[in-house]
Measured scan of single mutants.
Amino acid sequence: MDALKSAGRALIRSPSLAKQSWGGGGRHRKLPENWTDTRETLLEGMLFSLKYLGMTLVEQPKGEELSAAAIKRIVATAKASGKKLQKVTLKVSPRGIILTDNLTNQLIENVSIYRISYCTADKMHDKVFAYIAQSQHNQSLECHAFLCTKRKMAQAVTLTVAQAFKVAFEFWQVSKEEKEKRDKASQEGGDVLGARQDCTPPLKSLVATGNLLDLEETAKAPLSTVSANTTNMDEVPRPQALSGSSVVWELDDGLDEAFSRLAQSRTNPQVLDTGLTAQDMHYAQCLSPVDWDKPDSSGTEQDDLFSF
C-alpha cells in the first residue's frame, strides 16, 4: 500500500511530472533526481522514447528462454528487412502500455495491464526491452520488442512496467475491499429498513384510530445511509488515497477476473515476472533518469539497429 499512497501523494503535489519523457535525446524537461521519484509518476504514465523492432507469436506467457528466442527472431526479421526502425513513445501506467508513433502521434497499440504476463531486458541484446501480452483480438500470446538507447534504459522500462503492474494490483485490492464494505453496509441498511417496515402498523389501523404518522421519526431512520450505499452501487469504487486528485481509476471486468485468478494461483500475485536478476534490479533502481541518457562506457552510441 505504500507504493499506492506515495504515488497518489506525488501526483497530487505535481501532476505535471508524469508528462516528462525519457530517452528522447535531450528533449525532456528537468528530471527527478532518483528512481523513487520517477516511480511516483506512474499514475498518469511515464513516457519512454524507443524504437519498435516488431512482434512475434509465442506459445507460453512467460520465460527467459522463451523471450530470448522470440527477441532473436524479431531482431533477425528487422535486420533482414533493412528498413529504419519506427520511433515510438511507450506510455507506461497502472492501466497498461500505450504505444504511439512519434511522427504521426497515431495510436499503435493499447495493452491493458492485466494482459501483460512478462517483461524483460534481454541478456543477449542488452539494449532490447520486450514484453509478452495476450492479444486483445484473440487468445494468442505476442512478444513485442523495442530497441532502447542503452542497457540502462531497457532495464528502466522493464522495472517501470513491473512497478505499474504492482500498483494496478494494489488498486484492485483496495477497490475489492471498498466494494465488500459497501455491499455489507448496503445489506445491513436493508435489514434495518426491513425491520422498521415489519414493526410499522398498517396504514388502515392508523387511520381508524385517528393517529398521525410521525414524519420526524421517519426522517431519523437510516434511510439516507441505505440510499447512499445503493444509489451508486454500479459505480466502481476508487482508492481513497486518490481522493481529490485528477486521476480516475476504473476497474473493468477483465482486470477484476484476471487479478482474482492471480490472487488464487500465485504466492506473490502482485509481482510481474521479469528477466532481471536481483543485481540488475538493484543497479537500475539506483540510477537517476539522467543516467539513462548518458552514453555507455563501451563506446559511442549508434542510432541504428545494427549497432548491437
Rank of each mutant, 00 (worst) to 15 (best):
K87Y: 14
K127Y: 00
L276G: 10
K176E: 03
A278L: 10
W249C: 07
L212N: 12
F48Y: 08
M281P: 07
L47W: 09
E59H: 09
S297F: 09
D198E: 07
G96H: 12
T274W: 02
A7F: 12
T120L: 03
H144D: 00
D253H: 09
I98R: 12
L103W: 11
K294M: 12
L103D: 07
V247H: 14
A164V: 12
Q264F: 09
T36P: 10
W35T: 08
Q187V: 01
L66P: 03
A162Q: 13
G189T: 04
L193I: 03
Q270S: 13
K204T: 05
H282F: 14
K72C: 13
S14E: 08
E109H: 02
E40C: 04
G189V: 01
H282S: 11
R196W: 02
E216W: 02
F171H: 13
F165Q: 02
R182T: 14
A284E: 07
L11K: 08
K83D: 06
A263C: 05
P237Q: 15
A10T: 15
R29M: 09
R266D: 04
Q155F: 08
F169I: 03
P32Y: 12
R39G: 04
R29S: 15
K5G: 11
R238M: 08
Q20G: 13
P202H: 11
T200S: 06
Q163K: 13
R95G: 08
S246W: 01
R182I: 15
N232L: 05
R115K: 06
V247A: 02
G210A: 10
P295K: 07
L305N: 09
L47M: 07
Q197E: 12
R13M: 14
Q139W: 04
D304Y: 05
A258Q: 10
K5E: 01
R261Q: 06
A154G: 00
P239L: 14
S288H: 04
C119E: 01
P237I: 04
N229Q: 04
K87Q: 15
E44F: 12
S93I: 13
S298H: 08
D253N: 12
R151S: 13
P15F: 01
Y114R: 02
A278E: 09
E257K: 12
Q134V: 15
D101A: 12
G8N: 12
V88C: 05
A195K: 06
P295Y: 06
L42F: 06
K150V: 11
K152D: 12
E216T: 09
Y283A: 15
G8A: 03
D293R: 03
V174E: 05
A168Q: 03
S81Y: 04
I12K: 08
K150C: 06
K181Q: 15
S298R: 08
P237A: 06
A130L: 01
A219W: 02
I97D: 00
W35Q: 07
W249V: 04
L43T: 08
T230V: 06
A284K: 10
N102T: 09
D101K: 14
F171I: 08
K84A: 08
R261D: 06
P202V: 05
Q134K: 13
V236T: 07
A3P: 08
K83L: 13
V207D: 03
A221K: 05
W35D: 08
L103G: 13
T300M: 12
S265K: 09
G24V: 13
K30I: 13
S6D: 10
G26R: 12
Q60G: 11
P15H: 15
A154C: 05
E65A: 15
N102S: 15
R151K: 05
E177Y: 13
T149A: 10
A18W: 11
S245Y: 03
P222T: 14
P295H: 09
L276A: 11
F259I: 04
L213Y: 03
A70G: 07
Q20N: 15
Y52N: 10
K91D: 06
Q285R: 07
A162Y: 06
R73I: 10
K150Q: 12
D234Y: 14
L4P: 03
I98Q: 08
A263M: 13
C199E: 12
T158S: 03
S135T: 12
K181R: 15
K123E: 15
V174K: 01
S93H: 06
S175C: 05
C143G: 01
Q134R: 15
T89V: 13
E64R: 10
I108P: 00
V236A: 14
R13C: 15
G63M: 04
E109G: 11
D191N: 11
